[in-house]
């Protein structure tokens, strides 16, 4: 599948933004972070900046971005529509949470309810994002039950690393934050590792003979193509990364997304480097985001679409 940069940035940025929002909301509810206006502005500001730029980026993937509002209408059947509805709905409790936190310095009562609603709505939005891909049986590498959990886990993991950077910046970083983040980061990439093993091992069940219905007469081979240059279907569905490049990129994704941030966070944890904690955590967050960008590029580039069987692929 063609890896569109607008969609890659969208899913990575909103994943991290909603992930951070979920941690902020949960910690705020528990009273486990400084309820100062500065922290509120920085935390919710970073989170919403990621979400808003991500959502704007997604509209640049559209042929008719000015009609994007129409996408809120078909939530009964479409995961993409549901994603849009929840993405916009999330702004409401976030606004209430921001009011309580930044203006009143409180996170109890109605503000606790808003925090809980924001966390749940953010979680549902990322769930919908994952389901857009997971619900497509035409793409073997996406139609797997672990696809949506990976979207959630990587969003929560990048959000957690961002949370550590914020806590460090405000001098509120505790060992528990670091250990929790390391656990979430490790869990997310363990899931991703399992995903790669699964798609490498799974058989390609769709054959050219079934696609054309001609398999009963023998082996089917393309003779004359319908057109001399790639059409939309080939450009969109036929993109494929070379296997050896994919393996290199997988290692790069794991290094940037997991090894580097985990190493930096462990350095902070074991070294007791309070002074260097902030720059190291920022570096860890940037690396984690870069790793997820590579992971997301591969998610598209490694996915094969059944329609390519008509263009000569023997199996998909």
């Amino acid at each position: 599948m063609h890896p569109a940069y607008s969609v890659i940035y969208f899913t990575c940025a909103t994943g991290a933004g909603y992930g951070l929002l979920i941690w902020l909301a949960v910690f705020a509810m528990m009273g486990a972070l400084p309820l100062t206006p500065a922290f509120g502005l920085a935390g919710l500001g970073v989170s919403m900046a990621l979400v808003v730029t991500g959502l704007l980026s997604s509209t640049s993937h559209l042929g008719r971005p000015e009609r994007a509002w129409r996408a809120f209408s078909q939530w009964r059947s479409s995961w993409l529509s549901r994603e849009g509805v929840f993405a916009i709905a999330t702004f409401v409790p976030v606004a209430v949470l921001a009011l309580g936190w930044i203006v009143e310095g409180r996170s109890d009562g109605v503000y606790a309810v808003a925090a809980a609603a924001a966390a749940v709505s953010a979680l549902v939005t990322v769930y919908c994002t994952g389901m857009i891909y997971q619900s497509l049986p035409t793409i073997r590498a996406w139609n797997l039950p672990m696809v949506t959990p990976i979207y959630l886990a990587l969003g929560l993991a990048t959000g957690a690393v961002l949370m550590v950077a914020l806590m460090a910046g405000f001098g509120a970083l505790a060992q528990a934050h670091l250990m929790l983040t390391l656990a979430v980061l490790g869990g997310a990439w363990l899931l991703k590792f399992a995903y790669w093993s699964t798609i490498d091992g799974a058989p390609r069940e769709w054959k050219i003979g079934a696609a054309t219905g001609l398999g009963r007469f023998g082996q089917v081979r393309p003779l004359d193509p319908p057109h001399s240059k790639p059409n939309f279907v080939m450009r969109e569905m036929g993109y494929q990364v070379a296997r050896k490049h994919a393996l290199k990129l997988r290692r790069m994704a794991i290094a940037l997304g997991f090894a580097v941030p985990a190493g930096l966070l462990i350095t902070v944890l074991l070294g007791g480097l309070q002074a260097a904690a902030f720059p190291l955590a920022v570096l860890a967050a940037m690396s984690a985001l870069a790793g997820v960008l590579v992971e997301r590029w591969l998610f598209f580039a490694e996915a094969e679409h059944v329609a390519m069987l008509y263009y000569g692929k023997q199996e998909a």
Binding site: R64, S78, T138, F232, A307
Partner: peptide, 26 residues
């Protein structure tokens, strides 16, 4: 008149039947 050109329908179709019009955006 109402298609936003998100292309998701083309991903969902196993038969490669839908094509995006790059000029019309739908």
């Amino acid at each position: 008149e109402t298609c936003i050109g998100c292309k998701l329908c083309s991903w969902a179709c196993p038969y490669g039947a839908r094509e995006y019009d790059y000029a019309h955006g739908v």
